[in-house]
């Protein structure tokens, strides 16, 4: 049997909203350590890797390792029925072909239960090595979302240039061109508003802005986003999920013909 309970069910709903534009179905790997998921988009340009550690759940029980094929589209629809302060329990009974989502209102007066059929999915996994990136930009996730949205107006691609002083996002297309430069924060009251850059080497990489905008669907999970970059290496875009884990998106760069 598998059972995991989250007092703040809305966190799980935000995780699903963060994934479901990039991948519509995925296999969840459940073990005693927690829940992990790795899935690529259909064109093999982007990948998402999710980790939710067991100690981040209010209660967590996983008697044996399980691979659960789940339609994220359907799960998202079910989770929309959850109240914003509801407690969420995810359960898979032994020898069951369904996942049960139970939602309980804070005053314990309302209790809803939905079942979703599990799917048999073929999943391809990539081995992603630990990487020492040349540059890690940390910035407010709302700012990153706004910049990606704005850049998409100008063109299909965004070039991210990072130096020790700042990071510049630039796009050009048929309508014109533009760029936004952020300097490293020197003095901020709140850490979550800061832009900080750890840099070993300056980098300039170009990415399809459409994918960056899909990654930004996970921005409500975290005040800050980390962008880890090295030349000729996929971008890693990370949002923390409270102190229980993270969503990491990987995106292959655009390269010269």
């Amino acid at each position: 049997m598998f059972e995991a309970r989250l007092a703040q069910g809305s966190i799980f709903a935000k995780v699903i909203e963060g994934l479901r534009e990039l991948v519509t179905e995925a296999t969840w790997e459940c073990s005693g350590n927690g829940i992990t998921l790795q899935a690529m988009d259909s064109s093999h340009v982007a990948l998402v890797s999710l980790v939710l550690r067991s100690d981040g759940f209010e209660t967590y029980r996983c008697d044996r390792n399980m691979s659960l094929g789940i339609s994220l589209t359907s799960m998202s629809k079910v989770l929309k029925m959850m109240g914003k302060d509801d407690t969420l329990t995810i359960r898979v009974n032994d020898d069951s072909d369904a996942i049960v989502l139970s939602m309980e209102s804070q005053n314990q007066e309302e209790f809803a239960e939905y079942e979703l059929r599990l799917m048999d999915l073929d999943s391809e996994h990539l081995g992603i090595p630990d990487t020492d990136y040349s540059c890690v930009v940390k910035m407010p996730s709302t700012k990153f979302s706004r910049i990606c949205r704005d850049m998409a107006i100008l063109g299909d691609s965004v070039t991210i240039c990072s130096t020790k002083d700042g990071v510049k996002f630039g796009a050009k297309g048929d309508v014109g061109q533009g760029s936004i430069r952020l300097n490293q924060s020197t003095n901020v009251d709140k850490e979550e508003d800061a832009v900080s850059i750890e840099l070993r080497e300056a980098v300039a990489l170009t990415f399809a802005v459409r994918y960056l905008n899909m990654f930004c669907k996970a921005a409500p999970l975290s005040n800050q986003v980390n962008l880890s970059m090295s030349e000729d290496t996929p971008l890693m875009c990370e949002f923390k999920v409270g102190d229980m884990g993270h969503i990491r998106f990987y995106l292959a760069p655009k390269i010269e013909d």
């Binding site: 690529m40 340009v45 992603i128 655009k254 390269i255």
Partner: peptide, 13 residues
């Protein structure tokens, strides 16, 4: 510019 694929950088496991 052309779009590269993740499989150009990472191997299947």
């Amino acid at each position: 510019m052309i779009q590269s694929a993740l499989t150009d950088y990472y191997t299947k496991r």
